[in-house]
Amino acid sequence: MIYIIAILAILFVVLTFKVISQTRKIINKNKVQPGTDSEYLGAPDASNNFNAIALMAFWVLAVIGIVFSYIHYSQFFLPEAASEHGKRTDFWFWVSMSIITVAFFLVNTFLFLFSYLYRHNPKRRATFSTHNNTLEIIWTSVPAVVMTGLVLSGLVVWNDITSEAPEDAEVIEITGRQFAWMVRYPGADGQFGKSNYKLIDDGSGNPIGVDYTDANSFDDFFNSTELHIPKGKPVLLKIKARDVLHSVFIPHMRVKMDAVPGMPTKFWFVADKSTAEMKAMLNDSEFDYEIACTEICGKSHFGMRMVLKVDEPAEYEKWKAAQKPMITLNPDLLNKVPENLKAKAMKFIEVDPAAAAAPADSSAVETK
């Protein structure tokens, strides 16, 4: 590697001197002696005409290609946003796109047009202007004002969705790991139990390090296949990562936020279309919202996907009521509960009815 760098450095120095040498030759060749008229040393007029016409033809073909690609691929655009802030995001996106598109076509049209109109003509002499303060102020201030407006409009939306969520928001915790999402709900008490990365233990069924010395954790329940949220109610996603960088992306909700190890992030939004409504709108019975990871996190990054279900409020509450706490599904977690809280934790442990009905002393025998 050192030899390659040395060879490249030498080559760079040689080429640099070559460029300087050729530049000096061109300057000397094109010098005009005082008192003499300058002579045009460029390409013949036929070549200038050809280049000018070719540039205009290129621009016309480019415009046709751009318009065609936009119309053709618009079928792959995301459908209408399914969240309240998503509609604002889309509005300002298209405002920005409109301004940028107009500026793009306007600037490039004049660029190619001037190349054609002002190609070399021996009967025309160019005028030279050192500067124009008025023009400088206009073409500096106008883009600055427009860009500032676009940035501030996006900042307002961003500040809204990353600000403190409403008090009645449904709070859900989502944690990224290689290569899956883990979702935790706070249970009936509405409060999450504490968690600590030092307590992570996949073998014992504690993949996000829930602290079972905290009684608030007893009714917390998990889901690693689907994320359910209610329609029409603010949802606050508390986002974490337990290994490397991930990114929560819900395209239909226009939600995207990085999941950073050791630095919790958040995002709140209001879904205004249930899964059933979106299926009907798209006429697609197989449709499901999805959560994808948009931060390359390893070799199986492509498969890091979770289904998102947007339920009607009543359906959502019914679904929540049917979920079982993790400590119920994995009674071995009771070993992590301190003695003074085990009685409270036992309320979430399901007892086998057959075992409960068995005699206390199985060695007892009937006597006559």
Rank of each mutant, 00 (worst) to 15 (best):
A81V: 06
D37Y: 02
V67N: 05
P44C: 00
I53F: 00
N49E: 12
L106Q: 06
K87C: 04
S21D: 14
F76H: 09
N108E: 05
I71N: 10
R88S: 14
F68H: 13
S96G: 13
I20G: 03
A103G: 14
V32M: 01
A81T: 00
Q33T: 13
L111N: 13
K18G: 14
A43H: 06
S21N: 12
V107D: 07
G86R: 03
K31V: 04
G35E: 05
I100Q: 13
P44E: 00
L78K: 13
F68M: 09
N51K: 11
D37T: 08
Q22C: 01
A54I: 01
L111S: 15
P79A: 05
F58S: 11
V107L: 14
P79L: 02
F104E: 01
A62N: 13
A62P: 00
M97K: 08
N48R: 08
K18I: 05
T36F: 01
Y70E: 13
L61M: 10
R24F: 13
N108A: 01
A52E: 00
I27E: 13
S98Q: 00
Q22Y: 03
N28K: 08
F68A: 15
L41S: 12
Q75D: 09
F104N: 01
P34E: 09
F17S: 06
H72A: 14
A54N: 08
F50V: 06
F76S: 11
F50E: 12
V60L: 10
W92E: 00
R24C: 07
P34Q: 02
D45A: 10
K29P: 02
I26R: 10
P34I: 02
W92V: 05
N108C: 08
S98L: 12
S69M: 11
A57P: 01
S38I: 04
M97I: 13
A62R: 07
P34H: 01
V32W: 02
Q22D: 13
K25C: 02
F93E: 08
P44A: 06
V107N: 07
R88G: 08
T36A: 05
A62C: 06
F17T: 02
S47L: 13
S98A: 15
S38V: 03
L55M: 12
D37G: 02
K18L: 10
L41N: 12
F77D: 15
P44L: 01
G86L: 03
L111H: 09
W94F: 15
G35H: 10
A57R: 01
